[in-house]
Structures are given as C-alpha cells and as structure tokens.
Design a protein around this nucleic acid. Structure first.
Lengths: 336, 336
DNA sequence: TATTTTCATGAAAGCGATTTCAAATGCTTT
DNA sequence: AAAGCATTTGAAATCGCTTTCATGAAAATA
C-alpha cells in the first residue's frame, strides 16, 4: 500500500510544460510568464504535489538543514539556546537536526560526522569543552560551524557568548564590596574551559583588584546537580566562607536548601549568587541572586551568523559577546 | 574554495571495481569477496570517503531521519521525552529533525508537511491537543506517526502514555482518604484533552467513588506557569479547598510559595500533589508530592514503536500505557 | 521593416548513491 | 574434462529535482 507520490514530472506532464518550468514556479523564479505560473500552480494544487526535499538537496547541493549538537536537551540552559536557534532557523526556512552529545568528545566527533554525511549546510555546536580533535573536525568540515554559549579560548571558530569572566568578576566584586573576604567558588569540572579559563579568571581578577588573597581551597569542583549542591554545602560551611558564587542553578538550589536546613542563614551567614537565572532561582526560598544571560538570543544570534556563513557572506565580527546582567534576589544582602 | 568532495565513483575508480561493489562494502552486503572488501576499504580510508546521505536517501527512498514535533524544547517535560527519543533513534542509526510547534495547530500542520517534504521515514508527535485537521494530516502522511506523551481519545494513531486518569484518580483518592472533602483541581486549558478528558475524568471518578459531590467551582483553568500558580493560590485559599491536585510542577511551586508566604501552611492547611516530578518538586519547601512518570521511557518506547512501523512490522499493541507512580514528599501529610 | 534585446521555455546533463539483472568467475561433482 | 551451481562482479537504469545552455517568441530599437 505504498502511497503514490507525485513528482515534478507528473506536474510537468499535466500542465503541458517542462520540468524546468515547474521547478521555476516552485522556487519562485521570476522568469515565468504569469499565465504559465498560474496554470502550473493549478496543477500543483490539483495533484497535491509536494517537492521532494531530498532530491532537491541532491541536485542543488543544499539541504536547507542545519545540524545542532547539544550536550543534553533536558538541560534547560542549552534547551533555551536551542529554542532560539530553531526559531531563527525556521524563519530562514532551515530545519534542525538535533543530536545529544553528552559532552563526550568521541560522541561529539561522531555526531559531527553523521551530520556532515547528511549534508547539513551548517552546524551549531554547544558544549562545555573544545579540544584539538574537535577543532580539527570543525576545520575539516565542509560546512560552517558556529559555537553557541560555548567558548573556545583558542577560537577561530565563530561564536556567541556573554563575557563570563566579566560577569563573575562583577558578581564577586559585589560580594567583596559587601565586606566578604572569604568567598567560595563552586563550579563543575575545571577541565571545562568555561570554568577554568573564564569563571575562575573572573573570580581571581575580582580578588586581585581588591587585594584579597586567592585561596585554592575555596574553589570547589563538584558536579552540576542539586545533589552535588547539598553535598557541597557542609564543606563550604566548614571552610568559613561567607559567600559563594555558583556555576549552576540546580547546584545553587542544593546549597541553599542544605544551608537553610542545617541552620546556616542565607543571606546572613552565606550569600549565594548563581549563574543561569533559570526558573529555579525564583522557586527556592530565599530566591537566588543570579547572573542573567540572554539565552534565547545567544542561540538566535548564532543561527543568524550561521545563515550568513552559509550564504558566503562576511561576518561583521567573528566573536559576538552579548550583554549579561545581574538580578538581585534574596540570597544576597541589599547593596549599601 | 569549495572543498573537494569524494564520491563513490572516485572510490570505485581508485579501487578498480564498480560503484556497485563499493556500495556493497559500504552497506555491509555480504556478497563481496573478502579480498575485494579489504581493497575497497583501504581506498575508502585513503580518500577519506564519506557516503552522501542525501544521495543515498534519494536512491533508496529512506532518509534514516525521523521528524520530532515538540511544543517547546524548553519545556522539561517534553524535553525529557525528546531525550528518550533521540537516544533510541541514535541506537537505530536514525537522526532527528526537531521542530517546535508551540502547540499551535496551524504550525503543527506546517511543520508536519515540511517534515514529509524532507522525506522523514517517520514522525513522533508530542502535543497537548489533537484535532481533526491534524488527524487528517497524519492519515495523509506517507510515513508512520507515533504519539509520545500525547493522548488522542479518538486515537487510531499509535501512542505511548501513562494512564493519566488513573493517576489523578489515585492521587485524589489519597487525598480523600485523608479526610479532605473540598479538593481543588488546578489545570491548564480544558481545551486540551489530557485535561478535559483524562485528568478531569480521574478527578471525578475519585469523587464519585467516595460519593463526594463534584463542584465545578473547584476546577481551575489557569496557565501552566509559576506565576499562574502564585496568582491562583489566593483563589484556591478563598474557595475553602484543603487540598489541590495540580497539573504542572511550576504551577504547583507557585501555589506552594504563595501559600507559605501568605501564611497558609502546606500541608497542614493545604495539601498539594503535582503531576510531573521534575527537579522543581525537590527544590520547593516543602518539597512536592508528585505523580511520577517514566518520561524518558515514554519517548524511548515511542521511538521503538516507530522503528517497527518504519520497517513494516506489526505493533504488538497500538496504545502502550506505561506505569506511573506517586512519590510522597512534604506537601502532603503522612498516610495513616 | 529590419535588427537587437529581452523574456520565456524546454532539452538534457548532472547530483551521488542504490539496485536489478546478467555476465563472469570459481568450485564441486561427475 | 565437462557440466552445474554458487559466488562475485559490473553495467546501466533510476531516484526527483536543479541548472545550464540553446532556442524561439516577443518587445524594443533603429
């Protein structure tokens, strides 16, 4: 019971024109006499003809499809970027092939290769770390790649981000200005350059500016999860830190809840600032002060850049840095 | 600077065999002499040949791509399903074209059509409501469609779900057993059949069984958001309800926080049960008792069904119902 | 009216694979 | 050594569209 499929040839025959002409009307080519166009359109309507995008892709060498590599769709941070990407892609008539990489290097390379095999016109890559292997693949790929919410310190790959270092620096400086001298930094893996080379840098810069000593033992490398947060909290409490900057909202929620439950008052005994301003920051009590990032826009801008590259246009700037903000909630004291 | 692309023809020439033979080794066809295979493989390696999936798709009429229609990737509920879908898809060597529909009927139809144009081998549909228009499109599509976490009361479309009605019935019955007689029901739009035809039904069944009267004014149709929850809370408080079943976790969080802040004690003055067991249910204080659903599995099973359909196999059952559970947290009192 | 230009159209050559069918090769078996 | 069978291979058609190039028709210019 294979469903009959109508091809451009059928339309051409019924409309008594050539396939070329049908192709022209389908693609909005202006070199078609209005009367002819109308006739063809009528046949298309009548036969319910839908162009086969695969055949078109083969013939034109453009698939109007872009690959999106994401660590994990269930991660709200990356999902938000993905939403921005998809909206803009749709606006430009591109479709998205979405694949989860779990942040695993090997998987990222595999996925990139299957995407290239599918002849995607471009790729948006999101991930926490970019190594040489990956860079080499990007270079080898015959479609442009743009990084979204993903830093590559060594980057010649176009990318869209906020200035993570500056954001952390500002947040930590705020803390310092309120008199804190022992400020903890709770991150995910330091093997990820966003942590090792940006957040940590911002943290150090803030300390430096204030002439505060950098203390290694106040930097925690835990997982990014609620449970990691609850487990880390007593450690932070023991360290004598009176404030903490956290790299992930769920983790921050874990720290907050564990603090409250163990009698550590937030923000009186411990001020907390987190990074991603997800809904979680509004739900905890106290609600969490956070860096704000234009997540949707990061994705959207990345996709816009990619469309330019896919059309062989020049990029105004290879690395775009979007503005961040800091929204004060109840996990920090009021500024003097 | 178009990058050179090596085709099956190049490989054939270099290996001094025909394209057919190369095709055979690439596709693991056993009818190739080991020596030949080895020779071809060597050339493939040397030239770094990657088969063009688009050409293959055209010739074989299978794209090894499936379309996934999702209301919104940033919705953790659907994103979880999507993760299950993608993992299984990858296992079976399929790729996912992911598109957001915003639950808008028109957009859903559009998206389905572009997916069909891209010659996807199958489609997984997630959404909150299925109308006749959509059903007609499903029928018209020449690729199989499976619903994931999406009910169609009128369904001849294969689907994977939990028994929403039974879950709500059980949750509400628990509440009733603890002596509540005025139980509110906070849902999203009643135009969505999951609410109107399943959750509401379960709610009524529970009341019925307990010979409690059904009171229209205890059923609230609000949006599914944190803010909707905070706004709804005073209304619920005024109604005199002593317990509430909520259709969405963020909304439940809003109700909980607003209650606590207005002096309504949870669970003493108001017991709350929610639906999706997302991380949010662990983060609020009190944490929220919830129905648990195997979200990942719903997606995974749906994708498994789809692979069967795409290979013209029979389905054991057209409608699969996965088990749900209820996890007690602190927003409900302890069972006697 | 004759000559250019411009416009509209069609023929046919790809795009890079799969797949069918027939031919060639290699082994067994008499 | 001949016949028969199974195994390997290749030639060529095909998938459904885009795109180039040539051509005829129509419009503009001289």
């Amino acid at each position: 019971m294979e469903k009959q499929t109508v091809t451009i040839y059928d339309v051409a025959r019924e409309a008594a024109v050539s396939m070329a002409t049908v192709s022209r009307v389908v693609n909005g080519n202006p070199n078609v006499k209005p009367a002819t166009r109308k006739k063809v359109l009528a046949v298309i309507e009548r036969l319910d003809y839908r162009p086969n995008a695969v055949a078109r892709g083969l013939a034109s060498k453009r698939s109007t499809t872009v690959g999106v590599i994401i660590p994990d769709v269930t991660n709200i941070y990356f999902a938000s970027l993905a939403r921005g990407i998809d909206d803009i892609a749709m606006m430009y008539k591109y479709n998205i092939i979405l694949t989860n990489s779990d942040d695993a290097g090997e998987q990222e390379v595999n996925v990139l290769n299957t995407l290239m095999a599918k002849q995607v016109d471009g790729v948006i890559f999101m991930g926490n770390h970019i190594d040489d292997k990956l860079r080499a693949e990007f270079k080898r790929a015959k479609a442009p790649v743009v990084l979204a919410g993903t830093v590559d310190p060594q980057g010649d790959t176009p990318s869209v981000n906020i200035d993570y270092a500056a954001a952390v620096e500002e947040a930590v400086t705020n803390l310092i200005n309120r008199g804190h001298t022992k400020i903890a930094l709770a991150l995910g893996s330091l093997s990820q350059s966003i942590n090792a080379e940006y957040r940590l840098t911002g943290y150090k810069r803030a300390l430096n500016k204030a002439k505060l000593p950098y203390d290694d033992s106040l930097v925690y490398e835990a997982g990014y999860s609620y449970d990691a947060g609850t487990k880390l909290q007593p450690v932070i409490a023991d360290s004598g830190a009176t404030a903490v900057f956290v790299g992930d909202d769920e983790m921050a929620a874990g720290i907050i809840n564990a603090s409250v439950e163990s009698g550590v008052k937030v923000p009186d005994d411990l001020e907390v600032i987190t990074s991603n301003n997800t809904i979680i920051t509004q739900i905890t009590r106290p609600a969490i002060t956070s860096i704000t990032q234009p997540l949707y826009d990061i994705g959207a801008v990345a996709m816009r850049m990619l469309t330019k590259l896919m059309n062989d246009k020049e990029l105004d700037e290879k690395t775009v840095t979007l503005p961040y903000g800091i929204v004060r909630r109840d996990s920090t004291k009021v500024e003097d």
